[in-house]
Amino acid sequence: MATLNLKINGKTHTVDVEEDTPLLWVLRDHLGLVGTKYSCGIAQCGACTVHLNGEAIFSCSMPVSSVGSDEVTTIEGLSEEGDHPVQQAWEEIDVAQCGYCQAGQIMNAAAFLKKNPSPSMDEIENAMNRNLCRCGTYHKIREAVAKAAKI
């Protein structure tokens, strides 16, 4: 067991957990931040995507001990009012079906657009291809990322 101070969504949280616990399960089971989803646990689907110092990472495959003093941002902390351009675009385009994958999609899109604020469709697809959506909302995701780039 280790006592860790994690910087999450602009606040410091202290947790007592085994060092090998993936960040995902610390967020969900220990901190009640359940917006970050579990689906595969092996870095294949992107449902668990969060930002680590602004980079999109798979939180299911990141041991909490390696987070250190890096800043973690989850869907709950992406914007204060839920109005990050990507969230706005998602709402505008009405992207979700079941919605389970969408927090991960949004977090990936937000990190991507920060790096590439005016992407081509090909670039959008290359960036978003790592996130699975079992409901098949891919057409709307492309559209929403392109839209968010214009907000």
């Binding site: 931040l33 359940v34 917006g35 970050t36 989803k37 579990y38 989850t74 869907i75 709950e76 992406l78 839920g82 969230q87 998602w90 709402e91 009405d94 979700a96 919605g99 389970y100 969408q102 927090a103 949004i106």
Partner: peptide
């Protein structure tokens, strides 16, 4: 629009898990 949009896009607890 989907009546749960906002809750989905802001990561509110909605699902069984």
């Amino acid at each position: 629009k989907n009546v749960d949009s906002r809750a989905i896009y802001t990561g509110k607890p909605l699902y069984g898990l």
